[in-house]
């Protein structure tokens, strides 16, 4: 079914409905689990030195954000088409002058909007807990340290340095880009999947394979003497799957390494390009699919 010229309003309407549908399914309940995890973690970690506490709070929170966003992207995107087919909503939509590529783009934007909101909420909660703990440690140090003003100031500066740093913001931005890529990839898989469960299983497998893509690429290009079929398999893995390790910079960022702006923007651009490629592939498969 073709629908004439591209219409942003149609796409936004589908995106809005997709978002509302996801909210009705209570996907944001995972926020509650995350909150309990971060707040519980921060109170438990108070037994450690402040550097250890902040280090582990950042490790656990960013790791949990990465996990929640990735699996949220898979679960939300994998169920979009099967549910619409089951409810027969897809026939109502596509019987109108809505092209299939706009329908898919609307669906993708709906999931991306939900992921963006989740990133902001998770990130906001994490930073709030981190800042609260920082203030608490600062207050404790001010009250307990009876040394010279210079020494006190140096101790407070060290506490501030261990807690928040501006590199955490791009780290969270990259987690959002990674989850967008996974959403687009899952949408592509769901266009030829026979069921929602199949799409979830395949996407989860691709998620793990994507983290090994870098290893496959190095194996392929490393000049190691292996059979030609091993090299071919590694090459196929490296070319078909996304390099998800490129988006795993938060492990190093929480270790205190800064992320140069050119690296950040190139990583974002790579994520956007992957998202676009998987969307185009999804459109190609879905265009002639029998419904």
């Amino acid at each position: 079914m073709s629908g004439g010229s591209p219409s942003p309003s149609r796409i936004l309407a589908i995106a809005g409905n997709t978002f509302t549908d996801l909210v009705r399914q209570k996907v944001f309940l995972f926020l509650l689990i995350f909150s309990l995890m971060v707040i519980g973690c921060s109170s438990f970690l108070a037994r450690f030195s402040f550097q250890e506490e902040f280090q582990m709070l950042k490790d656990v929170s960013l790791g949990a954000m990465s996990l929640f966003l990735s699996f949220l992207a898979i679960l939300a995107s994998a169920m979009l088409l099967p549910r619409d087919l089951e409810d027969r909503t897809i026939f109502t939509i596509l019987s109108k002058p809505v092209p299939r590529h706009e329908y898919l783009l609307g669906k993708l934007f709906g999931v991306l909007y939900m992921l963006l909101l989740s990133t902001l909420l998770l990130g906001g909660l994490f930073l709030a807990v981190l800042l609260l703990r920082e203030q608490s440690v600062l207050l404790e140090t001010r009250n307990s340290l009876s040394s010279s003003p210079q020494e006190l100031e140096s101790a407070l500066a060290e506490i501030r340095q261990s807690a928040f740093n501006w590199n955490l913001i791009p780290a969270m931005g990259i987690l959002f880009v990674k989850s967008s890529l996974i959403a687009s990839l899952t949408l592509m898989i769901s266009t030829f999947a026979t069921s929602g469960l199949f799409a979830i299983l395949i996407s989860s497998s691709v998620y793990f394979i994507g983290h090994l893509q870098e290893t496959a690429r190095e194996y392929w290009l490393g000049g190691i003497a292996v059979h030609w079929w091993s090299r071919l398999s590694a090459a196929l893995l490296a070319l078909v799957f996304p390099d998800l390790q490129a988006f795993n910079l938060s492990d190093d960022i929480v270790a205190g390494k800064g992320i140069p702006m050119d690296v950040f923007w190139q990583t974002v651009a790579l994520g956007v390009l992957y998202t676009a490629i998987y969307y185009l592939a999804a459109c190609f498969v879905f265009q002639k699919r029998e419904l």
């Binding site: 490790d59 960013l62 790791g63 996990l67 983290h211 998800l244 929480v254 270790a255």
Partner: peptide
């Protein structure tokens, strides 16, 4: 390997 080095 799946990107959870830091939490582990």
């Amino acid at each position: 390997l799946s990107g959870f080095r830091a939490p582990l």
